[in-house]
Every structure is written in C-alpha cells, then in structure tokens.
C-alpha cells in the first residue's frame, strides 16, 4: 500500500509540473484568432457610445461606421454570426462588468425575425469563440458558470481550462463570408448560390409555441442590464426577403416590458424586396446593409433631434 501511495504522489507531482507547460498552449491561442472583438471586450478596450449586438443579421446588416461618419458618434458592432440572445446577453454583461470598457449610451439589439426567442439549430451560445480566450479569467469563470468546466479542476489544472480547439495550431484566416471591418461589422458582398429570390408577400403569424424560457429570460436580462445602467435600448428588426412576421414586434415589446424602442425598417421601401440587395433569404448584402443602416441612422437622428 505504501509503495503505491508513494508512486502515485511522485506521479502526481510530475504531472502537476507538466500541466504548467500547457500555459504556452493556453496563452498563445488568442493570437491565432482573426476575430478579436471578444478579446477587445474582455481586455476592456470597448470605447464606443453605440454598441450593436446580434447574430449574423446584426453583423451583416448594420455597418457601425455609418453611425460614426454621419453622426460623429463612435459605434462598434459586437454581433457574432450564429449566436443567440443568451450569448448577446453575456457579451453585454461582460462589456459592462469589465474594467476599462466605456459604458455605451445606446445599445442596438438586432433580432432575428422570428427565431429570436425560439428553439433554433443555427443560433447558439458561441462557446467556440470563448475557448481561444481561456487565458482570461472572466472567460474561464463563465465556462464554469455554464458547467462547461468543473470548478475544482479548472483551478487545479491548466489543461482542464483548454478545449480540443486549442490544439488546432493553424493560424485562422478571413473568409469571404467572415471579413470584419475595423468597426466590427461583417457585411457580405456576394450572393448565396442557393438563394431562390422568391419574395414572400404573405406574412407569417408569430407563434409562441417553440419559445424557449431560457431565451426569454436572456432577453429580459439584456433589457435589465440596460435599464440598470441607464442605457438606451433599441431593438431593431432587420429585413428578411419577406414581409415582417405578424405579431413579432408586439411579442418583443411584451417581453421587454416597454423599456426598449422596437424599430422596424420601412417595409414600403422597394429596395427591400429587390433580390440584388440580399445575400440570401435572411441576410442583406453590402449595398442593402448601407441602405438599412442609413435608415437606422435617420431614425436615431430623429429620435434624438440631432
């Protein structure tokens, strides 16, 4: 018994030292990323007055630079393709809690018509964006909070903080779908091959059947962060290649308990039914994004009498 205990102790000691060598893997991971926006939040480098959150619709449709150029107000886009409201809520919370970040005056949440609160295969909490940044304590704490990592092991072992993606040592590159402007926006300048260009004129009716309670809670929490910090919240519904879902804006207003301004684009504008302005049925392409952002800027200007 004594023999095995001694051997186990020596092995554990050696292993503990070996574990620390993985600090190199952990600390070099952020350098391989091309999208450094999350790192900007976690290191306290967000200094804009207007922040935009959302999924790919937020990333593609709103060009933050247009705000800066037209209004002289700094704006930055923190929308991540494939992310859902739970992730947006986390990003806003992280932005507000991290020292060094400037508290924004306005937050624009770009929502998905009509999947924002529903079960969705394509929208999720983007854990894959977090693992490259596990060198930052705030990220590690969130992973533990979400039960992705175990608290004791997380404190004891560097290797437990890692994920298999940390072992892909390839430098990531921009693709034609994921190029990021300095203002954080990700407009797209081509059309998807499978885009059928059939504009749907008959609106869907919003149904609450597939709503997820976690998403409703996250949207409420998002609103609460804004309310608590006295931040203006605009919820923007961007165009799909169809008319807006009936009752969707009403439902959002209901969940937001009247705190946010729900803004829907000008549905009479013929450009939004022109396929040349769309990437696919759910996303604008660059020319459409400029049209949409200019309209949003106009709304913002009028709202603030600028």
């Amino acid at each position: 018994m004594k023999k095995i205990l001694i051997r186990l102790l020596i092995f554990a000691g050696c292993f503990f030292i070996l574990d620390k060598a993985f600090l190199l893997v952990r600390n070099s991971a952020p350098e391989r990323e091309v999208d450094r926006r999350l790192e900007k939040i976690v290191t306290g480098n967000i200094k804009s007055d207007i922040l935009i959150y959302g999924s790919s619709r937020g990333a593609r449709s709103v060009i933050a630079k247009v705000f800066t150029d037209s209004l002289g107000i700094s704006a930055y886009n923190l929308s991540f393709p494939g992310s859902d409201i739970t992730f947006h809520e986390y990003l806003l919370r992280l932005t507000l809690e991290t020292k060094g970040n400037k508290k924004p005056k306005t937050v624009i949440l770009v929502v998905d018509d009509s999947d924002e609160l529903k079960v969705s295969k394509s929208l999720k909490f983007r854990l894959d964006r977090m693992y490259p940044l596990v060198k930052y304590k705030a990220i590690r704490e969130e992973l533990v909070r979400r039960k992705e990592k175990k608290p004791i092991l997380n404190e004891l072992f560097v290797i437990h903080q890692l994920n298999k993606s940390n072992f892909l040592f390839k430098q990531k590159k921009f693709t034609k779908n994921d190029s990021i402007m300095p203002c954080g926006s990700m407009p797209i300048s081509h059309q998807k091959k499978s885009f059928n260009k059939m504009y749907k004129k008959v609106p869907y009716n919003y149904s609450r059947d597939a709503e997820l309670i976690q998403k409703i809670r996250a949207l409420r929490a998002f609103k609460d962060h804004c309310k608590k910090n006295n931040i203006e919240l605009i919820v923007a519904i961007p165009p799909n290649f169809r008319v807006v879902t009936n009752g969707f804006a009403f439902r959002l207003n209901q969940v937001m308990e009247g705190y946010a301004t729900i803004w829907v684009y000008d549905q009479k504008n013929p450009l939004y039914s022109n396929p040349d302005y769309f990437f696919d049925n759910a996303h604008l392409q660059t020319n459409g994004s400029y049209v949409y952002t200019n309209e949003l800027v106009k709304f913002y200007r009028e709202k603030h009498n600028l």
Binding site: F11, C14, F15, L18, D19, F22, K147, E148, K149, K150, L153, F157, I159, H160, L162, N163, K164, N166, F167
Partner: peptide
C-alpha cells in the same frame, strides 16, 4: 510509461467538460 499515462490523463482532463 509515465509519459504515456500522462498523455492519456491530459486527453481526459482537457476533454472532460460537461
């Protein structure tokens, strides 16, 4: 032998998330 054990343990700890 210990290097081999360590390799297995590292894999287990890295991947033991949820």
């Amino acid at each position: 032998r210990w290097v081999f054990y360590s390799f297995l343990i590292v894999c287990v700890i890295v991947l033991s998330g949820k």
